Computed example of a mutant assay.
Amino acid sequence: MDTDQLEGLVAQVHRLLVEDPDRPVTPSWMWSLGLYRSVVLVLFLLRQNPVQAAAGELFGISQATVSRRWTTLLPVVEKALAGHVPAPAEGSAGRVVLIDGTLVTTWDWAGEGTAMFSGKHRDTGFNLQIAATLAGDLLAVSDPVPGSRHDVFAWSQSHFPEAFAERDKLGDLGYVGTTIRTGRRRPPGRDRPAGDKEANRSINTLRAAVERAMAHLKDWKVLATRYRGPLTRFPNIVKAVTALAFYKKGW
């Protein structure tokens, strides 16, 4: 994010804080850290996913202050950038849509472990569905679902089926049985025909672009390294990171 984009984001956050009559704080007195550096702190937490005590040492504030800034400003940053997220149907017009799922690992919170545990990945986390173009440009990110649910379920529970209903879609074998075009499974008890192997190879070559889009999204390390915060806050984090990814590209 360049300086102009950062300053523009801070200005939008300031406007929302001033205009919200129900918010108990205002930018004029809220922090010795200052609004600009407070927004930078939130972006740093999303980008690097450090423990809050370490972030506090870098910014010269206490862990408790870091926690308050994070809790207060994360939803405001998300709201400020929401208008920069294009509608999936609009962004995908005339394009082939690539679909893939990824697990964002989380702490194994007591009482949530079974729902969050992914047998495929042997770890706890959330399943996110990612949509991208053949050029590797991000189109959309779904709401998270517990990691125990497979990609077909996560796809069906997202807004993707409706948003991309009129688009050609490609996915891996995990989406067999949906409207997404996939490769072909090996027939039981037989070798995969040469034609199927070639078709699968072609699809996999094209699908590499969605993996690039996913890798760029996970440059925000809160999605790439283990998430330690309350699980109820994670959907807001996904929305904020998605909005930042589009905002950074100039949407």
Rank of each mutant, 00 (worst) to 15 (best):
T102F: 01
R122N: 13
D168G: 05
A135W: 10
V152N: 02
K169I: 12
R192K: 09
A199P: 01
S148M: 07
T124K: 09
P161E: 01
G174M: 03
A163T: 05
R190C: 09
T102W: 00
G171F: 06
P161D: 02
A199R: 07
A135K: 07
D172Q: 02
V104L: 11
G195A: 15
N127A: 12
D123T: 10
D172E: 03
D168E: 14
G136C: 08
S156L: 09
G171S: 02
W107I: 15
I203V: 12
V152C: 08
R186V: 09
N127Y: 06
V104S: 13
D151M: 04
D137M: 11
N204K: 13
F153C: 08
G183A: 06
A194N: 06
S202R: 15
T179A: 09
T179S: 09
D151K: 01
E166L: 09
A163L: 02
D168K: 06
G195R: 08
I203G: 03
A135H: 06
P187E: 03
I180S: 01
G111H: 03
T124R: 10
S202F: 09
F117Q: 00
A165H: 04
A165V: 07
F164E: 02
S148R: 12
D100T: 14
W155H: 01
H159A: 15
A163Y: 04
L128A: 07
V152T: 07
R184D: 13
E198F: 06
H121W: 10
D151Q: 00
R122Q: 15
R186T: 11
H150V: 04
G177V: 02
R167L: 05
P144T: 07
A194Q: 13
T114K: 14
H159L: 08
P188H: 09
R184F: 14
P193R: 08
A131Q: 10
G174N: 01
R201F: 12
R95Q: 15
H159Y: 09
K120N: 10
A110I: 14
Y175T: 02
G125L: 12
T106R: 03
L138K: 10
D143N: 10
T124M: 04
L173W: 00
D108L: 12
I180H: 01
R186Y: 06
K197E: 15
G136T: 05
V104D: 06
D108Y: 07
D151G: 01
I99E: 01
Y175V: 00
T106Y: 10
E162K: 11
P144F: 08
G136S: 05
H121P: 04
H121D: 14
S156F: 08
S158H: 06
V96M: 14
